[in-house]
């Protein structure tokens, strides 16, 4: 018998410190597998965000930098412009990318920086304990909208892919989900394309991954996965929003 899923060498071999059922572990593994497959580990620099994935710098077995909340795309820009021979990715959550760091997100896309952004949308702030995110669904409860997100008080959730699709510089935008195993496989394909685009100097590529936060959603991981499919996906439809082939 043969082991068919060897741990990727681009991932540091240590237990994930994320909560049970958290999607970060899945996406970390996918990125590492892709680094292995594209043989780019030794010239990849990753940018870790503020939020739960601040610990990403412990897991990716490549050069890493951890920066201020929301500024990943600016940091990635600085690295890529200084070392164009490096593959640079920024790993960000929804509060990081779509709230505090929205300006950096939009402008790096507008400049079509040749970087790869992995955007984990789990519709909540995880690290700080479950506050409302820019992507929290209407009616969804959080510790800062305990009665549920309302239009009157909190406004509407932000659809990042749809919004960025208006920008010519955003070359590749795809939304996927890691709520199911087939979704994980599709997510890997999308992230791989986002890295390949950078190798091919295509420009700004972002994959928005619908993920779970069972702990702060107050659900079991299995319920959380169902929440993604039943509640999030209708608001955040999966698919390709921009592609370089268009």
């Amino acid at each position: 018998m043969k082991l068919i899923n060897k741990k990727p060498s681009s991932l540091v071999d240590k237990p994930m410190r994320y909560c049970p059922g958290c999607g970060h572990g899945i996406v970390h593994r996918l990125i590492a597998e892709i680094m292995d497959e594209l043989d780019i580990r030794e010239h990849t620099v990753g940018v870790a965000p503020v939020g739960c994935a601040v610990f990403a710098d412990e897991y990716f077995n490549c050069d890493m930098i951890q920066g201020p909340h929301g500024r990943g795309p600016a940091i990635a820009t600085g690295i890529k412009r200084s070392k164009p021979e490096c593959i640079v990715f920024s790993y960000q959550g929804d509060g990081d990318l779509a709230s505090i760091g929205m300006a950096e997100t939009v402008h790096s896309a507008a400049r079509s920086e040749n970087i790869t952004i992995i955007f984990i949308n789990n519709a909540i702030y995880g690290m700080t304990g479950g506050q409302m995110a820019p992507t929290t669904l209407l009616g969804q409860t959080s510790s800062t909208c305990p009665a549920g997100r309302s239009v009157a008080v909190n406004g509407y959730p932000i659809k990042v892919c749809e919004m960025l699709a208006q920008l010519e510089g955003a070359r590749y935008l795809e939304r996927t989900s890691v709520s199911t195993a087939p979704g994980v496989i599709k997510t890997k394909k999308a992230i791989k394309k986002a890295f390949q685009n950078q190798i091919d100097c295509v420009g700004f590529s972002m994959v928005e991954v619908l993920s779970t936060c069972p702990t702060n959603w107050g659900m079991t991981p299995v319920q959380g996965a169902r929440f993604v499919d039943e509640k999030m996906t209708p608001i955040y439809p999966l698919g390709v929003f921009r592609s370089p082939e268009q």
Binding site: I65, P68, R71, I75, A76, G78, I79, S82, K83
Partner: peptide, 12 residues
């Protein structure tokens, strides 16, 4: 954004 671009660039 500018100072964070510097943060990234100077890290290289």
């Amino acid at each position: 954004a500018a100072i964070n671009m510097l943060y990234g660039a100077s890290a290289t």
